[in-house]
Design a protein around this nucleic acid. Structure first.
Lengths: 338, 338
DNA sequence: AGAGGCTTTGAAATCGATTACATCGATCGT
DNA sequence: ACGATCGATGTAATCGATTTCAAAGCCTCT
């Protein structure tokens, strides 16, 4: 591999001068600059980012730790994060935690060992000591989508409260009264928040949320199936199932199919997180859509602000209800463009 | 940040000894070893991977350059690659090329600058000089899914020929005779291979593939929609559309819907690449499934073999037809477990 | 002409690890 | 008892960049 010394030798200057040329340092004569540049060209020299990082103590790399890449919501988030980071001259290393705290810790450790400049995290659980240590140690951290309460770390997320209210209004208007929820892990903020918002919204319509209608899921498809099967086995099954993420909605759909029932005639289905596929399922699924791309961009902006010494802001963006056909035929005025 | 010197000082030994303990060098006395280890523990020391990489000239990192993360096929591939790499003590940095050669080059350059130990690539186009240079320079390279002909680089892929024959047999048995294809970019090997296999299989049944029934797509949903609209506008539209990847199948489904037609009654649809969502679309979609997970694992195995000085093998695994309902009701014997 | 200032360049230290080589005791074999 | 050997450890070089400091060369001004 050709190093800075080779370039220096080829151009008849010192390594220091080559470095200056490469970093656009002003005090290099035009003559030397062109000589160095052509040596760089000739030798096909590329600076060794490892060596550079060691010296400058910055890697221009961001770590992104998400809970499940196979979840299209996170895939899209990852993509927008990468794009935004690239635009600012940063690379992104993604760590997939698969909803397992140990895996999450593994990735955090690896990323920290690699001295990423900052970390974007969507925590799988409520309390990782590693995360506290990192924050303590001054590592730039930003939470995205989910967060950990009590930590002084900026949070970039979307608030689903209003959309959940809209959702319940929509369901109520369609005549549904027995509404059930497949909740996410209570250890996650999104898990807790969504069920609370749902309960509040139901209360506003004088409806209650009996324990039998609360299923505990883990944001994975299998749990959606299991919980829904439980619902269908009830003496009085719910009229609507609200899956608090898209994978559990998929599982719910499976379960309904397996019972030979149909959506929305026998049971209605709604999901949190909208994804392109929901348009093509049978039937198209009503969902609460987050501004995923904007979330990713805002998160990168906040993290890079923190890294570069500015003061990062927490950001909360609204989610919105996208009405399709999985809860019964909506009145024409409510129909979304989907 | 605490460095090896701090640990050395705390344990009352030299940095060399600390390094030896950390790397399980045999000639360290048990006493010193425990002393060092407890200093490491006390100070919460973690070796700086950047410094280590500079010295040892290895990063224990693999680069994965794929053409589109939003494509569930590649997402799954990426996931299995990461898992397999982790099991062997490697990390993975993913570069998403979004089917753009320039972006692909950007990521290759970044990964090379970071001195990844090897690169797993699914090339977007047929000829990147960067790639040739890298191969020339001795960078361990392995192609996965797609490859570039004429380069002496191991290829890990799945052969769809047999499955495409099965597919045509299936369609023929259902009485379909006018079969159209949405092809992928001719610059990609998978793009070319799939259309060739299709043409051959048709020939085996005495069917031809008229130009009007060949649509040029780019592996993205929008192109699937556009091409399908073209097919539907034909004086004699095809009875079957074969989309050579899952995103174009989605686009095709959109187009069919937009025309107020239904699958499979008005037109049948098949996709290359099976994904979980195909079970839940309306109707469930018949597809050719690649052994994606195994592909990722084999690719990592090949690359790590190459990196660690063993001789890597090219691997070709068979794809298989998964029959669902999007081509009409199959005879009971052919029905898959889906 | 000489002092001072500016531009351009190079020498050398540094980042945090690994590792070849040297060193120092202690043990062993004869 | 003495040289050889071995085990444990330290010293210093090294990886490839960046950056501080010093110095050289050249102007300019008085």
């Amino acid at each position: 591999m050709v190093s800075i010394k080779d370039v220096a030798a080829a151009a008849g200057v010192s390594a220091a001068t080559v470095s200056r040329v490469l970093n656009d340092h002003p005090s290099v004569s035009t003559a030397t600059r062109t000589r160095v540049l052509s040596a760089v060209e000739d030798l096909g020299y590329r600076p060794n980012a490892v060596a550079r990082s060691l010296r400058t103590d910055q890697t221009r790399t961001l770590g992104l730790v998400i809970s499940d890449v196979l979840n299209p919501y996170f895939t899209e988030l990852a993509r927008s994060v990468e794009g935004a980071a690239r635009a600012l001259g940063y690379s992104v290393i993604i760590g997939n935690a698969d909803e397992q705290p140990e895996l999450q810790d593994h990735h955090m450790r690896t990323l920290l060992d690699r001295r990423v400049d900052g970390l974007l995290i969507s925590p799988t659980d409520g309390c990782s000591s590693l995360m506290r240590d990192a924050a303590q140690a001054g590592t730039p951290l930003v939470f995205v989508d989910r967060w950990i309460e009590g930590m002084d770390v900026p949070v970039v997320r979307s608030d689903g409260r209003a959309a959940v209210h809209d959702l319940v209004a929509h369901l109520h208007a369609l005549g549904h009264r027995r509404l059930a929820i497949i909740a996410g892990p209570a250890a996650t903020t999104t898990g807790r928040e969504r069920i609370e918002a749902f309960r509040e919204a139901l209360a506003a319509y004088g409806l209650s949320l009996p324990d039998a209608y609360i299923g505990q899921g883990d944001f994975q498809a299998a749990s959606g199936r299991r919980v829904t099967e439980g619902f269908l086995g009830l003496p009085e099954p719910p009229e609507v199932v609200f899956a608090t993420d898209n994978l559990m909605a998929l599982g719910a759909l499976d379960a309904v199919r397996a019972h030979g029932l149909s959506v929305p005639d026998d049971i209605a289905l709604v999901a949190f997180d909208d994804i392109p596929w929901f348009v093509h399922t049978d039937p198209p699924i009503t969902a609460i859509a987050q501004p995923t791309g904007e979330l990713g961009r805002a998160a990168v902006r906040a993290l890079v602000d923190r890294i570069e010494g500015r003061t990062p802001q927490s950001v909360t963006l609204p989610a919105r209800l996208v009405v399709r056909r999985s809860c019964g035929n909506p009145p024409a005025t409510q129909r979304s463009q989907s």
